[in-house]
């Protein structure tokens, strides 16, 4: 086999960041909550950028439990989708131009989602990672958790099951 020279770093980053931006940025509800994603290689960290409207109980004040749950669901779906798109992004099979124009790949559908509220969410940014514990042709299982100041003190954790979009391309 002939040795292929690695691609220049800008090319790699631009391709991956474009795909991620199109994937996450194309979902209205993700923008409504102000969720963005940090990427290290293929690892994603969801960021819930604090905004006053995310507050549930104004007396504490604390993030709305529904918002932190939704944050985990969003992080799960985007991570799951990102993992399944990765090979296509890397091989160039995925058409980035059409992705950028809003032609999103079909997203996984949530079957069920079970949320465990561990601590009140403080009025500041939160971070989340999702781990795909099993990904089959039709069903996937995901564990997700979110934290704020300390990675070891999660605010909320969840497990969910997802129906993968049919591969009819």
């Amino acid at each position: 086999m002939s040795h292929r020279k690695p691609e220049p770093v800008q090319v790699v980053k631009q391709r991956r960041d474009t795909a991620l931006r199109a994937l996450a940025g194309g979902v209205p509800y993700v923008n409504f909550l102000g969720i963005t994603f940090d990427r290290r290689g293929d690892e994603l960290t969801g960021v819930l950028n604090f905004d006053e409207k995310l507050i549930g109980n104004p007396d504490l004040p604390a993030l709305h439990g529904g918002v932190t749950a939704a944050f985990l669901e969003v992080t799960s779906i985007i991570t799951l989708s990102w993992m399944s798109l990765w090979d296509e992004v890397e091989s160039g099979r995925l058409d980035l131009a059409s992705l950028e124009q809003g032609r999103l790949p079909r997203l996984p559908k949530t079957i069920d989602f079970a949320i465990d509220y561990l601590r009140p969410g403080l009025p500041r940014d939160a971070y989340a990672r999702a781990r795909v514990t099993r990904s089959g042709r039709r069903y996937a299982s995901v564990h997700a958790e979110a934290w704020q100041d300390n990675r070891d003190k999660p605010v909320v954790q969840a497990v969910g099951h997802f129906l993968m979009p049919w591969d009819d391309r």
Binding site: V27, P28, V30, L33, G56, G66, V67, I77, L107
Partner: peptide, 24 residues
């Protein structure tokens, strides 16, 4: 509301908004 849509292809409301409603 259009801003609650989770899948722009289908226009279906995101499950997360439904969780917030159910929680509330």
């Amino acid at each position: 509301a259009a801003q609650l849509v989770g899948d722009p292809e289908t226009g279906v409301i995101h499950g997360g908004a439904v969780s917030t409603l159910m929680d509330t």
